[in-house]
Design a protein around this nucleic acid. Structure first.
Length: 212
DNA sequence: GTATGGATGTTCT
DNA sequence: GAACATCCATACT
């Protein structure tokens, strides 16, 4: 059994193992694709809540729709961190948005997490959201942060190590990934920088935005 | 199923 | 004031 065991690939990677920063693509668009199928893990006093990422958007260098377009401000400074850190901000005064910083220190780019498929802690998510329907718990960027109780207090944390919030391994081949324009933005509206798991019912947004 | 409008806080003109 | 990487309730087809 010795030889067979030695040849067995080590399997430390499951959804609670933090993603290794060294393995994250350095390019923002590649990272947005890469994160589809991975997990977001949230540790709460009541227990662990997690979900599989099924939808992302990339905000790239020189992107007029990106928050860093006009340079660093107190709000967006986490976007300029090394890839794999959290940028959390409030949209429309009502909803927190969770982003993963991308590229290298000093470059203000990132990936918005737009939807999750609930995996663990579903009763906790239901309490956090105040609704029952599984399909609506984390389908949308503001909904997923409510389900995971993510807010400004987590802005700037390292998502590549265990803590209150981190990114975990998931499926390396999650299924066919579709691409479309981004949702809810006016500038740079033509760019195909939204990515989603085609087969997932947990993807947000009008389907007519989808392109083959 | 799609469309519309209000609530809400922060940032920038 | 205006804009905003949204959500929800409500109205309608």
């Amino acid at each position: 059994m010795g030889r067979a065991a030695a040849l067995k690939p080590s399997r430390p990677k499951h959804r609670h193992s933090p993603l290794a920063r060294a393995e994250l693509p350095t390019d923002t668009v590649s990272l947005a694709r890469y994160l589809i199928g991975k997990t977001v893990v949230r540790r709460l006093p009541e227990g662990v809540v997690s979900g599989r990422i099924v939808e992302t958007e990339a905000y790239i260098v020189g992107d007029a729709a990106g928050h860093a377009y006009r340079g660093m401000t107190p709000r967006n400074r986490s976007l300029f961190l090394e890839r794999g850190h959290a940028y959390v901000y409030l949209a429309y005064g009502t909803s927190w948005m969770l982003n993963v910083s991308s590229e290298t220190t000093g470059i203000g780019t990132g990936v918005l997490i737009r939807a999750l498929e609930p995996l663990e802690g579903i009763p906790i998510m239901r309490l956090n959201r105040g609704i029952e329907r599984l399909g609506d718990l984390a389908r949308g960027p503001g909904r997923l942060t409510a389900a995971l109780r993510v807010d400004r207090g987590l802005d700037g944390i390292d998502l590549c190590r265990r803590g209150p919030l981190w990114l975990g391994w998931g499926d390396d081949e999650p299924g066919e990934i579709g691409r479309s324009i981004r949702i809810g933005i006016a500038r740079e509206a033509h760019r195909l920088l939204r990515f989603y798991l085609c087969a997932s019912p947990f993807v947000s947004g009008p389907r007519r935005l989808n392109v083959p």
